[in-house]
Design a protein around this nucleic acid. Structure first.
Lengths: 109, 109
DNA sequence: TCCTTATATCCATGTGTATGTATATGCACG
DNA sequence: CGTGCATATACATACACATGGATATAAGGA
């Protein structure tokens, strides 16, 4: 159903897969070992990662080698940069004052 | 249930709310107008954004003013930076013209 | 005190999605 | 060919979650 970059990374397992690809190409069985879920699940996640542009596939014999593509990361970077202003400016001005974000919710009961 | 940054931003409505806060404090009714969903939904989303550390609330009379907090953005930046290598390196390999900021040659892996 | 505005919470509902099991497809190699 | 390995897909299930409507709470103003 074509997820966007944030939706794609929202799933922890998928993020684990992405992280395991950080160091380069991997075949599915390797990823299965690190992912902690069943092989069918990994394949499905890899399919989703492929649909959303996060990975490329390269068949090699009976295996399939997956690798990260840079585009989605650039897209995230672009989105995030809109807020760079906010978090850089606030850094020194407020600093520790913002540290109590605890509670403050729910008045009574 | 305490969502992480990616899960929080996975919802498009929530992202729209965050974007509408980019320019500063807003009260709920303003956000409702831009969000395109019912007020109860907006309040729920704001609660989630609060729980995940994206926003602060400041009561002012009967209204509540919401504003962005920098922390989650820094966290995203941190995660993303692990991949900067990847997408800058690739950029170089593809010979993109927009990369005149790079000075040092990067050995390929 | 009553009425209105602003926001939060409860409830019911529909939809999405992550997962495992089982099965299919494709390649390798004897 | 037939057997085994690597990966993908089908199916069923369970659970999470976004949403609207109704209602609760709280403040402001007449």
């Amino acid at each position: 159903m074509q997820l966007d970059a944030f939706q794609t990374l929202a799933d922890p397992t998928r993020r684990r897969i992405v992280e395991s690809l950080r160091k380069g190409e991997r075949q599915v069985s390797e990823i299965v070992r690190e992912a902690g879920i069943h092989q069918s699940g990994v394949s499905r996640h890899l399919g989703i990662l492929h649909d959303s542009g996060f990975v490329t596939v390269r068949p090699e014999g009976q295996r399939r080698l997956y690798a990260l593509r840079p585009e989605p990361f650039r897209e995230l970077e672009g989105w995030l940069s809109q807020y760079r202003n906010l978090w850089e400016a606030r850094l020194d001005r407020f600093g520790a004052a913002l540290e109590h974000r605890r509670k403050a919710r729910r008045p009574k009961k």
